[in-house]
Simulated assay, not measured.
Amino acid sequence: MTTGPWRGTHAVFDQLEGAWDLDRTIENQAAMTGIARFERQPPDVLAYREEGRVRLAGGKVLDASREYRFERASRGFTVFFNEVPPRVFHHIELERHGDAFCGQATHLCSPDVYDSSYRFLGDGTFVVRHTVRGPRKDYVSATLFKRRKAP
């Protein structure tokens, strides 16, 4: 049984390749719109890069970018910071929940903790949510990704 374009936990990784519009909110702090690209790097890696405009709560607008490395896993993927040597951000193992494939992980960025979730929805979109708690950081970041339409 499949859920929309994701076609099962084993297929989600391959369906990420390409360009996505992103819309992010960081509660009470900022919002970002931009483009995210997953570019295939053989054999089982996707290089992730996002670029966009961030509007801070006070109205200031900034350009922003971020890069990660996604590696295929048997039921999901592992996300690495774009560093040399690569350092694991988190491992996501996907499970079916209703009409979505979902996974979650925790990352300690001492002294703060990132609780992250990925939800791949039946309409072909996906949402990444980071709840960050600790003495230095306290916020929720939620990003909606929609497949970018061809020009």
Rank of each mutant, 00 (worst) to 15 (best):
M1E: 14
T3W: 09
P5Y: 02
W6Y: 03
W6G: 13
W6I: 01
T9C: 12
H10K: 14
A11D: 15
F13G: 05
F13T: 10
Q15E: 12
E17A: 13
E17N: 07
E17V: 12
E17Q: 10
L22Q: 08
L22K: 01
R24G: 06
R24N: 02
I26P: 00
E27C: 07
E27M: 08
N28V: 01
A30E: 08
A30M: 07
T33K: 14
G34T: 02
G34N: 00
G34Q: 00
G34V: 01
R37V: 14
R37L: 07
R40N: 08
R40A: 11
P42A: 15
P43Y: 07
D44F: 08
D44V: 08
D44M: 12
D44L: 12
V45T: 14
V45C: 12
V45L: 13
A47M: 12
A47D: 09
A47Q: 10
E51P: 06
E51K: 13
G52R: 10
G52Y: 12
R55F: 00
R55P: 06
A57P: 08
G58E: 10
G58Q: 09
G58D: 15
K60R: 13
V61N: 07
L62K: 15
A64I: 02
R66T: 04
E67Y: 06
E67L: 09
Y68S: 11
Y68H: 12
R69G: 02
R69A: 09
F70I: 00
E71P: 06
R72L: 08
R72E: 14
S74C: 11
R75M: 07
G76A: 12
V79E: 14
F80I: 03
F80L: 01
F81M: 11
P86Y: 11
V88W: 00
F89K: 08
H91S: 15
H91W: 04
H91I: 11
E93D: 15
E95A: 15
E95D: 12
R96D: 06
H97E: 13
G98H: 02
G98W: 01
G98F: 00
D99N: 10
D99C: 01
D99V: 03
A100M: 08
F101R: 02
F101Y: 15
F101D: 02
G103V: 04
G103H: 07
Q104E: 14
Q104P: 03
A105W: 05
A105D: 03
A105R: 11
L108G: 10
C109M: 10
C109G: 10
D112A: 04
D112C: 00
D112K: 00
D115F: 07
S116Q: 07
S117K: 07
Y118I: 01
Y118K: 03
Y118N: 06
R119F: 00
F120C: 04
L121I: 00
G122F: 06
G122T: 05
D123Q: 13
G124M: 05
T125I: 00
V127M: 02
V127C: 04
V128W: 14
V128T: 10
H130K: 12
H130Y: 12
T131P: 05
V132M: 06
G134M: 02
P135D: 11
P135F: 03
P135G: 09
Y139E: 00
V140Y: 03
L144V: 01
L144I: 01
R147M: 00
R147I: 00
R148H: 03
R148F: 02
K149V: 06
K149M: 07
K149W: 02
A150V: 08
P151Y: 03
